[in-house]
Design a binder for these strands. Structure first.
Length: 189
DNA sequence: AGGATGATGGACT
DNA sequence: GTCCATCATCCTA
């Protein structure tokens, strides 16, 4: 299990190495005073200008700027005009690497999550759902996930016993990269 | 249980 | 105009 200051070390690695190690960590949000804690069970690596599937493939833009910031910076983007999706910047500053946080299980604050989602089940089993449950919007883009004072942050957790690697979801390019990482818990969900 | 589809906006050709 | 790092709903079985 990574300790708090180890998360920064972990996230400075290449995203395809850091992503599976991030599984089991906690994503905690305190937006509007409601704390929701999620154990991360599914992530994907995106590797900047080396990766045709990455938003950063064509370099830095207004939209993807957070991914080029320090490792542990929150990159939020709007998906299909409707949903928000959350990433952590990875690698050294300036490379545009990131880890998409796709799903998890609610550990605490389930009532707040259910209220935000407008339902009692399927609260955080997808990247858009997870952001809605945690109240993560473009307003939180650029947040330092490694700062304990941040409204959205990463904290250490228990690592999973089993991790499976698969192609990434919803991408048509670079399907040969097995850069989606899932815990056994998420597989059975 | 699984496939099709509409919503909805930004980035890109 | 087309393509999305998606989701909820509405079918068919």
């Amino acid at each position: 299990m990574p300790r708090a200051h180890d998360l920064e070390t972990l996230l400075t690695r290449a995203p395809e190495e850091a992503a599976p190690l991030l599984l089991g960590s906690h994503l905690v949000s305190n937006v509007d005073g409601f704390e929701v804690r999620v154990r991360i069970n599914e992530v994907e690596a995106y590797k900047g200008e080396d990766d045709p599937a990455s938003h950063a493939f064509r370099g830095e833009t207004d939209r993807n700027r957070s991914m080029f910031d320090n490792p542990g910076t929150l990159y939020v983007y709007r998906s299909y005009g409707i949903h928000n999706c959350a990433n952590s910047a990875a690698g050294p500053k300036g490379v545009g690497w990131g880890i998409l946080i796709r799903s998890g299980e609610v550990i605490d604050g389930g009532g707040f999550a259910a209220r935000r989602r407008g339902r009692r089940t399927d609260l955080t089993d997808g990247p858009g759902k997870l952001c809605q449950a945690l109240g993560i919007t473009l307003e939180q883009n650029g947040t330092d996930l490694l700062d304990p004072r941040s409204t959205v942050r990463l904290e250490p957790g228990d690592p999973p016993e089993f991790v499976m690697a698969t192609p990434r979801v919803g991408v048509s390019k670079a399907q040969d990269r097995m850069w989606r990482f899932v815990t056994a818990v998420q597989l059975s969900a």
